[in-house]
Design a protein around this nucleic acid. Sequence first.
RNA 1: GGCCCGUUCGUCUAGGGGUUAGGACGCAUCCCUUUCACGGAUGAAACACGGGUUCGAUUCCCGUACGGGCUACCA
Length: 509
Amino acid sequence: MNTEKKVRVRFAPSPTGGLHMGGVRTALFNYLFAKKHGGDFILRIEDTDQNRYVKGAEEYIIESLKWCGIEPNEGVGFGDGPHAPYRQSERKKTGIYEKYAQKLIEAGGAYYAFDTEEELEEMRKRLEVARVVSPQYNHITRMNMRNSLTLSYDEVQKLLDSGVPYVVRLKVPRNEEIRFYDIIRGWIVVNSSTIDDKVLLKSDGMPTYHLAHIVDDIEMQITHVIRGEEWLPSAPAHVLTYKFLGLEQNMPQLAHLPLILKPDGKGKLSKRDTSGLPMFPLNWYDERTGESYVGYKESGFFPEAFINMLALLGWNPGNNQEILSKQELIQLFSLEKVHKAGAKFDPEKTKWFNQQYLRKKDKYELADLLQPILKENNIQAEKNYVAEVCELMKEKAYFVKDIWDMGSYMFVDPDTYDEKVIQKKWNTESQKIIIELLQYLDKTEPFSAEHIHHTFEQFIQQKHKIDYQLLRTCITGVSSGPSLAHIMAVLGKEKVKDRILKVLERVKV
RNA sequence: GGCCCGUUCGUCUAGGGGUUAGGACGCAUCCCUUUCACGGAUGAAACACGGGUUCGAUUCCCGUACGGGCUACCA
């Protein structure tokens, strides 16, 4: 609450799978907010659920953040700061969560519960039969369960000493108004009677998210918690926990981000989507299920485009500018301008973003990016030539690989020719014209786009009309593409002549 | 079901008591171009509904509808 304090925010994913693009956006907003205010951005790994732990997920998260260019300046994979360790499983070993749980119990804000799974199940059934509207472990039902509120002090001690498994639950009071301010949503008021007695410490000794994140946020001096809207319902319980701990003054400010929704249909974006675009920043293979998912990186997206698109999902600078560099995003970002409503992911616009970034790149940069694709296709070409091809093709491309897909004829002679064009237009007459044109082209010097164009005009004036589509097909094999004169200039005179002669020889009337 | 959050063109959004409700993606038409694309121009397209408050509401309030989230010893 103290604005003098240095801003410190964290991204705290649990390593239960590949980092979803929704998670990337949460990380991004944290990053932008931190940078904007000259603060720290921390990566904390919340691996308190051993059952859901997925090998490789942590590395994946780190690599994803690196690729996106939203690197934490403190935390797992990014160098220890003063608050190491940053993995909750390791932090647990220091006894810190137990310490806070103990404090809570002593303050009367939490209690031990010894109920077995069966007993809990039984309770739920009982409530269901009784048609209780919200069956939960709460201020009413806890009085019928086995916990330190219903058992005598001696009984509790005996159970504790005998090593019977127990959990620690938050003692949520009855009928109290819990208020808190959310930077994005404003004041939120909830009646405590609707909140259940959340488990804070599990019977395996691990804290739940509810306890762990509060302890760590306090210990790590986090000033702002920026997280997904799915946490909004449990936020009142968190506020209560801070209060019981006597830490209300140190409580970070809360900001709950709107969810990213599926482009079609309903619900939040899931791991797999039918839109055709990836849901993950990087390729992800899930060892458990054997499922693999493609990433934005491998699909040919630029990280800047990906980040730009994500930033505008639920936020915008308010000035109609849509193409924003990371620096601009940082400058313009503010939580107050984050939208409240969920945003549907738009695959079309995502591609458009990539196209915009592709156009901004210069031809040599594109040439470097195209090089690996050429290599895959066993093409060897000089960098300057590749750059010219990129310059020529880039207006049509969404991805670097489009340059190859649409312009492979710039590197290899066509071996097939658009049949529709050939069938319709290839005849003795048109052949004759092309042979005549060939002589004109031979004399074109220099063989630049401008001069070629001039040659065309001359030819038309002195000889015949030119069927450009046919000529294009002869040279490139396809019936559409960038300016033909430019293509010819880049290919060079010899290549052009060669290709035309080849067609005359190979494609009979 | 209960609790919480939300609702401006198909989508992302700007705006906000009096506006021709703005931009972008996509779509359509036209211009440019040998073609496609780019670029340019134009167009179709929105304040969920019903009550208040007000001289006036898309904007504020309340309902309704719809959408979303949560409802675990998961995060």
